[in-house]
Design a protein around this nucleic acid. Structure first.
Lengths: 209, 209
DNA sequence: TGTCATTGTGGACAGTGTACACATGTGGGA
DNA sequence: TCCCACATGTGTACACTGTCCACAATGACA
């Protein structure tokens, strides 16, 4: 491929360009749709140029995944921001938990490709607070969840002895519904059923935590 | 490819052979590792022979997925069978629910590749009771779950008005933990942490349903 | 026995990830 | 200011994938 559509030999910001090309492909078709050669094609660059910025396809995918997690965080933050304060700290804390869960699920529903790319690429809890995964508010999905759980304890709406590891429980439930809705056996549910299931699920978590 | 290692031109049971080859690949590397050509290679047959039995790679993958769901059902049934009866129907029903969840999670942990192949391939609830997905007891994972939920209601351990759609809630929670453990951000958890999280999760579900 | 649908083969093609050698710019020290 | 090392992009090549097409072997049944 020659340097068509570009005057300079250097691209200028290839890494970023590849990343957003990858993000776009992920949006349309999930992690499997993130293909390296296509990204370089969209960037107007030869296939191998990508290897100057990403060790391999996997590395690109991880970067895309992190970015997608940031977008998920945005959705969660938006849901948090939308809840009116009631004055009662307990109620507010519970609403915060609900909002985090519903924001996560809303992201799954509106951006299924990105959701799958964000959370079904092999990763590790040790990276859960990496700034690359933060939304515009500066916090990652994991940090947002941890935050509302902390508030829940402080407000006395959740026994302190159950706090440790509660992220995993809450996250699991919501994540599972998201996955089953998207490419698991729960596809084909109507919008209403999804809405209903989402609400009931976060209630169940709030009750059971 | 010639008919090496095989005297007859006809293979005899190619469909089944491809299926178990696919299952083996899925076991080792999840859905992405199920590659059509490799399956035919293992069956000692030319690549195109597969197309006499499966429309395309996707069809093979779906068949493998169904088989894997049957294996998951086996794991769940084993967990159910292992619980001692207490005499108290309420207690028994709750233990049944726990067993179903823990059996599902045990399968996820011991057969991560098969688990992902079973439950993260696009499917539909309308196929949830397909005999192809049944375990040796003749019931699919979905049917097993529905069964324990029914018992829960009959035993009076769960309000009847919450029964509808409860499968989705219970399934979501347990499925989410499984996925996050395997290739999501919850990898790297120690055996103990997983054990603990699993137990707490099913308790949460039992409490919150 | 002859016919014909079923099952398998062979060759081909486009597309993928990635390795290796090479080309082209650019910034920092002489 | 020159020049060169280093970063970045190109070209070629290879092995591998899914899948299409035309053809060959086989076995069941008329």
């Amino acid at each position: 491929m020659s340097t068509v559509g570009r005057q300079t030999y250097r691209h200028g910001d290839l890494r970023e360009t590849l990343l957003s090309a990858g993000l776009e492909m992920a949006r349309e078709g999930g992690p499997d749709a993130v293909v390296l050669r296509e990204a370089t094609r969209r960037a107007g660059v030869s296939p191998n140029a990508a290897y100057r910025h990403f060790a391999d396809r996997r590395a690109l995918l991880l970067a895309v995944s992190a970015t997608a997690q940031g977008l998920a965080a945005n959705s969660m933050e938006a849901a948090i921001a939308a809840i009116p304060t009631s004055g009662d700290p307990k109620v507010d804390a519970r609403e915060g938990l609900r909002a985090v869960g519903l924001g996560y699920l809303a992201f799954a529903r509106t951006e299924p490709g990105l959701f799958r790319t964000a959370f079904s690429v092999p990763d590790d809890l040790s990276n859960a607070e990496s700034p690359a995964k933060a939304g515009s508010g500066g916090r990652t999905p994991f940090q947002l969840l941890a935050g509302v759980l902390d508030r829940l304890v402080e407000a006395g709406a959740m026994p302190r002895e159950r706090r440790a590891g509660a992220e995993l429980l809450a996250w699991s439930s919501v994540h599972g519904l998201g996955m089953l809705m998207i490419d698991g056996p729960l596809r084909g549910l109507t919008e209403d059923m999804i809405e209903d299931a989402s609400a009931r699920l976060v209630d169940m978590v709030a009750r059971g935590l």
